[in-house]
Simulated assay, not measured.
Amino acid sequence: MSNEYLYIKVDKNSMAKNKVVYLEDIAKLYSTDTDKINILKKQVVLTIKDNKPIKCVFSILKIIEIIHSIYPDVQVINLGESDFIIQYQPKKERQILKYLKIVMVSLIIFFGSAFAIMTFNEDASVEEVFKKIYELIMGSEKEGGTILEISYSIGIPIGIIVFYNHFSKVKLSNDPTPLKVQMRVYEEELDKTLIANASREDKIIDVD
């Protein structure tokens, strides 16, 4: 048995930039024999024919099969995923469409958030609460706006900025924002579901 080892690590989800996907595009390889590594990196894993977005689910066994077809004696040690996804996006959308989407989403979030805050204030009778607090502290009925309403109005955006840890390009700390955390959780669950569905439908690209 050969004592030569090849270590391979593949991420759960890889984005292909070209229609011809090489091993180096989706995997990290390590071996003491750098010549073999350079040859293996240029091995074709997938050739995409259609000019449309696709997601292919692969088994690591297929990659090991490709490696052994060239170097049958090398011992492959997998340090990454056992099943993984290769995605392909034909081309970027036009910038005008991208900016239109940003504007539309921003408007929806802005008006949706404003509506949610207004309905909360109405349901919780915030105005009446402020009125009672003012009367208890000042001993008289309030007339017009007070420091309570002003503080409340300023506190809401400050609280949002602190919670999301992000304002324009400025970050309050190096920690990921709650939105980024939830996006990563969503992506992980989506990848697991795609792999599970492909396995159930026998669509994983695997060894024969």
Rank of each mutant, 00 (worst) to 15 (best):
2 S>I: 00
7 Y>I: 05
9 K>H: 13
11 D>L: 13
13 N>G: 08
16 A>F: 08
16 A>Y: 10
23 L>Y: 02
30 Y>W: 13
31 S>I: 02
32 T>W: 05
35 D>V: 02
36 K>W: 03
37 I>D: 05
38 N>I: 07
39 I>Q: 10
43 Q>K: 15
52 K>P: 07
56 C>M: 07
56 C>H: 08
57 V>W: 03
59 S>K: 07
60 I>V: 09
62 K>H: 15
62 K>P: 11
63 I>K: 10
65 E>P: 01
65 E>A: 11
65 E>Y: 09
66 I>C: 05
67 I>K: 07
69 S>F: 13
70 I>W: 09
71 Y>A: 04
75 Q>V: 01
75 Q>N: 05
77 I>C: 02
83 D>E: 10
85 I>C: 00
89 Q>E: 13
91 K>L: 05
91 K>M: 05
95 Q>K: 12
96 I>T: 12
98 K>Q: 11
103 V>I: 09
104 M>L: 13
106 S>P: 06
107 L>Q: 09
108 I>A: 10
110 F>W: 03
113 S>V: 03
117 I>L: 14
120 F>H: 00
122 E>F: 06
122 E>L: 07
122 E>V: 01
126 V>R: 00
128 E>R: 11
129 V>I: 11
131 K>Y: 03
134 Y>N: 05
136 L>A: 08
137 I>D: 09
137 I>R: 10
139 G>H: 02
142 K>G: 01
143 E>P: 08
144 G>T: 02
145 G>I: 04
147 I>S: 15
148 L>A: 10
148 L>W: 15
149 E>W: 04
150 I>E: 14
150 I>K: 14
153 S>F: 01
157 P>S: 09
158 I>L: 15
158 I>V: 14
158 I>Y: 12
158 I>E: 12
158 I>N: 09
159 G>N: 06
159 G>R: 08
161 I>H: 12
164 Y>E: 10
167 F>G: 03
168 S>N: 11
168 S>P: 03
169 K>V: 01
169 K>S: 08
170 V>W: 15
172 L>A: 15
172 L>W: 15
173 S>E: 14
175 D>S: 12
178 P>K: 02
179 L>E: 11
179 L>H: 10
181 V>T: 07
184 R>P: 00
187 E>I: 03
187 E>A: 08
188 E>L: 08
188 E>W: 07
189 E>L: 09
193 T>K: 08
194 L>N: 04
195 I>M: 00
195 I>L: 00
197 N>L: 03
197 N>Y: 04
202 D>V: 01
204 I>G: 03
205 I>G: 00
205 I>Y: 04
205 I>S: 04
206 D>L: 03
208 D>W: 06
208 D>Y: 08
